Amino acid sequence: MTASSRAHSFNEAADQYAASRPSYPPALFDFIEQFTSRPLAGARVADVGAGTGIATALLRERGADVIGVEPGGAMAAKFRTVLPDVPIVRGDGNALPLADASHDLITYAQSWQWTDTTRSVPEALRVLVSGGALAIWWNTTAFDVPWIRGQHQRIAHHCGVRPTSRTRPDDSDAIRLAGLSGLRVARRQVRWSRTVSFGTHLANISSRSAFPVLAEDDKRAFLREERRRLREIFPDEAVEETYVVDLLVATRP
């Protein structure tokens, strides 16, 4: 499956994505403010690949003047339901539908990998004001937690993708792969967790990009077996999910 088709597969699970996907810890936004030396309150922010608005809502809570940018129709429709007073436009990071030098901060939560960095980096620099910042981050897998590592490997095998053994590359590789070489860049990793029901946890893992294209019978069988495994670890049916947020922040000249 191509990256483009996997990205758009999220449209098929917009409601599920909004209800089950994890949020992000306050420390993430604290570091963005620290690195950029300005508060999010009052900042003009574009949240690109906004999806159903998980990160957008947090940016707004910090007082940002935020707009969502989202390529998917179903995701954009759900965004409008969840955040009816926040503007959203259709588009993606390779060709931002935003004016030159119009924003203080551009954010990508879980969505930078869907861009072509030879296009998305120049686009971000075009839209940012002088001294503005680009922040990209992911909730990554806490591989040091045995049950999470085992589940990650089973999901990868079931969906026909290669499992990874670490969260993200080291600092220099991460910056190079993100296309941000030559800019002032900082990286932080923030560990956090949440406790959710079996239903929310299973909905979360089945909203990942490789799952929506699987046959329904295939998905149900996999999730049924995962529920059985989880009950052995969490007999009270409350799952503690642990994440490591991997954040890169870059400022333009």
Rank of each mutant, 00 (worst) to 15 (best):
I106V: 15
T118E: 15
L230H: 08
L214N: 06
Y108A: 15
H152L: 07
L28H: 03
P163R: 07
T36H: 09
D173Q: 15
R166S: 13
I155E: 14
F234Q: 10
E12L: 14
A250V: 00
T56A: 13
P163E: 05
E237W: 02
R44F: 08
G179P: 02
A27H: 04
G49Q: 13
M1A: 14
F31D: 15
G132V: 11
A250E: 00
A135Q: 03
D218A: 06
P26I: 06
D173N: 14
V161G: 05
T107P: 11
P22K: 04
P87K: 13
D218C: 09
G131D: 06
N94Q: 11
E232T: 14
A76I: 06
S37N: 14
I175V: 06
R149I: 02
L40G: 08
L223D: 01
D47R: 09
A186Y: 06
T81S: 10
R194N: 10
A55D: 10
N139S: 00
V86D: 11
A76N: 05
T107I: 14
A43R: 06
F31I: 10
R229V: 13
L223P: 01
L223S: 02
A133V: 05
R62P: 08
N94M: 07
R229T: 13
R208N: 10
D170E: 13
A174P: 00
L180T: 00
A178D: 01
G199R: 07
A156M: 08
T141V: 15
P163V: 04
V45E: 04
V45K: 04
P26W: 02
T52E: 04
P146Y: 04
S37Y: 02
L214M: 13
F143T: 02
G132R: 10
R220Q: 03
P26S: 01
R231D: 10
T56M: 11
S4I: 11
R176E: 15
R166W: 00
A178Y: 01
S206T: 12
P169M: 01
L28A: 03
A50C: 15
A238G: 07
A215Q: 12
H157S: 15
E240K: 12
L125I: 07
F35D: 10
E70M: 09
R166I: 04
I205H: 12
L177E: 14
S4N: 11
S130Y: 03
G68K: 08
T81K: 08
I54T: 15
G72W: 06
F211P: 05
L180V: 02
R126N: 00
A77V: 02
A124M: 09
L83R: 12
I233P: 03
G132C: 11
R162F: 00
D100R: 10
K78W: 02
L214D: 09
R224T: 03
R231G: 05
R231K: 14
T200C: 12
G160S: 07
D30I: 05
Q34D: 14
E123N: 11
V249D: 03
F10W: 06
L230A: 11
F31Y: 14
R184C: 09
Q110T: 11
G131E: 05
Y17V: 04
L98I: 11
W112H: 10
W138Q: 05
F29W: 12
S209P: 09
T36V: 09
E232A: 14
